[in-house]
Design a protein around this nucleic acid. Sequence first.
DNA 1: AGCAGATGCGGAATCGACTGCACGACTGCT
DNA 2: AGCAGTCGTGCAGTCGATTCCGCATCTGCT
Lengths: 348, 348
Amino acid sequence: MRQNVTIRDVAQRAGVSAATASRVLSGNPSTSASARAKVRQAARELQFHVNARAKSLRRQQTDTIGLLLPDIRNPFFAEIAQAAEQAALAAGMTTLLCNANESTAQQDLYLKLLVAQRVDGIIAAPQGDGSGKLDETIALGLPLVFVDRVIEGVDVPSVTSDNWSGVRQAVRHLVGLGHRRIGFVTGSQETSTGRERLQAYREALVRAGIRPDKTLIRYGNFQTESGLVAARSLLDLSQPPTAVIAADSLMTLGVVQACNELGLVIGETLSVIGYDDTETTRALSPGLTVISHDPAAMGTQAFAMLRDVLGGRRVPSVVLPVSLVIRNSTGPVPLVSASATSESGARR
Amino acid sequence: MRQNVTIRDVAQRAGVSAATASRVLSGNPSTSASARAKVRQAARELQFHVNARAKSLRRQQTDTIGLLLPDIRNPFFAEIAQAAEQAALAAGMTTLLCNANESTAQQDLYLKLLVAQRVDGIIAAPQGDGSGKLDETIALGLPLVFVDRVIEGVDVPSVTSDNWSGVRQAVRHLVGLGHRRIGFVTGSQETSTGRERLQAYREALVRAGIRPDKTLIRYGNFQTESGLVAARSLLDLSQPPTAVIAADSLMTLGVVQACNELGLVIGETLSVIGYDDTETTRALSPGLTVISHDPAAMGTQAFAMLRDVLGGRRVPSVVLPVSLVIRNSTGPVPLVSASATSESGARR
DNA sequence: AGCAGATGCGGAATCGACTGCACGACTGCT
DNA sequence: AGCAGTCGTGCAGTCGATTCCGCATCTGCT
């Protein structure tokens, strides 16, 4: 049998009661030096590892947080995960990773599981409108912090980044280069980021005196493949856009893949602005102009906020700034538009 | 107070004993239809969520696995994580994510934590030579499965991919194109993959009748930055290689970044072979020739193996095949070598 | 009617650690 | 010497769910 060593065994070997052993091992100061020495030694000899489940049953606190993310394969969320998890570790807390797979159903499944596990709190990049399990969880009073995404209308502190400003800067940059037909590949409208970025795109166009054109908008799902499909479809238009903005890192990759497929020269025949400045985007050539924010900071910050909530403090939401990193994937409008030369030209 | 609803409350409301309530909720067949109905209803009304910690204390089983990976930001490991975690979820098990940060010390910290949490088993991509906590954990008899990486000499089933064959194919491909000065950016020698791939590189060169040249080998740490530094240094040689192989996905990105920086045309002035066929590599242009394996399959397989171990079955290790995906980043040796034109030419 | 066997249920012990309470020993003061 | 206060310790109860054991009831058969 594995791991039967209980605190009682340690106590016995040390010649003290379990109560004393417990006090020594949990650093309770009212213990004698001799008891401390004997218990520590016994624990070492027996390779004692406290049973965290039993402990948390008694203490009514698990030192565990849930981290509910839509997709860990998305480098943006991977960064958040890494940062949050390292911060938790430093605070002596364990992280339960929950990968909702961009599915509200699976998110609900995981929320149930987190409640059952009696995690002390949850950091989530939520999905959906807050109906279902998410509302229930909030009603339960489980400490919760949103990261990146939010649910409108619920009172939960959040760390997000400034989607409006990011997209506005991107559109302004393109307009400044003379673009007027700007395509937009948006993410799931089930998410706040998906909605906000799309809205920001429309608004920024209007401000620039351009009437938003439905045919230039494509709805993706934050996955590479959807970006690829969206871009293909945009570029297949009889009047294709001269620039495309993608609203998330993976979809950005999809757009770039589509350009490569079609042999477009990014930054010349087509301008592209991506989302998230990841190691990937930095490896692309030509360098990608991106809306950049700081997922690691978001993760760290989210954990700090959760600790505050756990500590009973009231914390305000934070919106982190974003910046537009201009590289070589954006340029002036070509004299002849993207695929006018090849396909749609032939179509007339 | 949050979540005080215990099974006793449910039992009371349903007018039965806690024992019966427990039996109903855990699907024990010896319950009457009427008890089932009453208990289920009461549980629903009270929003009862079983306390998983209490349950596992009693059952001596936690339905939780530990997933110990070196770096979740590495897309390769993110894929493994996602696959393993989804498989666990489907089996009704929770995943504790442990990000060792490519550090043996942190790995040990996490192993301690996993033991304290009494996870049922661990899937790990281990680090180091097995001394320290890893050996202790094995000695404890905690079910363990290695994924991607192994520790030599310990008896733990593993899912790995065929590093030897992958690198051999890569070298052969380059030699076939006429390359004889082939640089190699290897990963941490603290890992089995780091060691095997380097060894395989040396061996493949010898087989091809080329004497391995120490000056063409650079030691990275599986991070992008190290690949960048390594590639810069290789390309800065007075006799730079005409081709470079990178031994992991992130370092591959680093190598590509270095080439972009120096303005080298990948596939012409320098041939590059990367590791792992991720969505990133597929977005690069020119398309990257890569040694490809299947992290998702590794993750799924690793979980399946762990279940077998948990079930007391004896499972053999598995080595998954790899393939060389040839794209456009590899080409014949240029007439004038990579930087001979620019730098080293000027140096003479 | 009488009996064996099946079935559903409740009481109580249990998993492992923590902690309130009480007690004995010791110190320092009057 | 006597007393109050401090300190270290152990006993036993508790957290919430599961499960062994035994009892009562019911069914079906002779």
